[in-house]
Design a protein around this nucleic acid. Structure first.
Lengths: 106, 106
DNA sequence: ATTTTGCGAAACCGAATAGTTGCATATATA
DNA sequence: TATATATGCAACTATTCGGTTTCGCAAAAT
């Protein structure tokens, strides 16, 4: 069973959960109200997100607040980093072509 | 069957393929040499990557060169963007705490 | 003390996934 | 023309995934 950030955000419901709790911690019930599935299904997603360390729990009485843990998202950001350089390069190349065309027009 | 960037990069082999062809287009055979699976398995991954529009093909005789298509990776980058703000804010908060401690020390 | 509420865990199901082997097809090469 | 090479596609399999229903447990409310 693979448990990493990439697998965590592969599911659209999990991405929505992440966005939802990004600003404030929420309980499973509160989260589930925003979806058309059962609380148990959300609970399962939360378990996966916890195992992937994308969220962390904070018990308060019988309620559990789930909060975003940005560290792992940063890891993914780091992976994309290598490609950001590529598309910036390609943009600059296009930019060069455009300015060359402009000069020729003159 | 879901076909988006997030699903495309969920698999570690596919991530490796993406990194491999990032700098130069490659044929399925050449790509497969870098892995411990069959060429057909790689071919399947390439089909998924093509369907997700993360790579594009260029036929040259009987060979097919697969090349990275950065556009969709940018889409994912855009999704992370919203969280980048959060972790920068948290960093700044930490920074404030640290400078307050420094001032008090004085 | 009893009931309600919030939650996770287990068992089950259909669909998707990642891999395999075998085959068909088109392009090179001898 | 016959053969070798590059590739995709189909059928099959074991495993994982996302969901549901049912249950048990602990904390809160009555």
């Amino acid at each position: 069973m693979r448990r990493d950030v990439f697998q965590a955000i592969a599911d659209p419901t999990r991405r929505a959960i992440i966005t939802l709790i990004a600003m404030q911690a929420m309980t499973p019930n509160a989260i589930a109200e925003n979806f058309h599935t059962t609380r148990q299904a959300i609970s399962k997603h939360l378990r996966i997100l916890t195992e992937c360390e994308v969220v962390k729990q904070e018990q308060r009485g019988r309620e559990i607040y789930y909060q975003l843990e940005v560290k792992k998202l940063k890891e993914m950001d780091k992976w994309i980093e290598q490609f950001r350089k590529i598309w910036e390069d390609r943009f600059n190349q296009l930019d060069n072509v455009l300015s060359t065309m402009k000069k020729k027009k003159k």
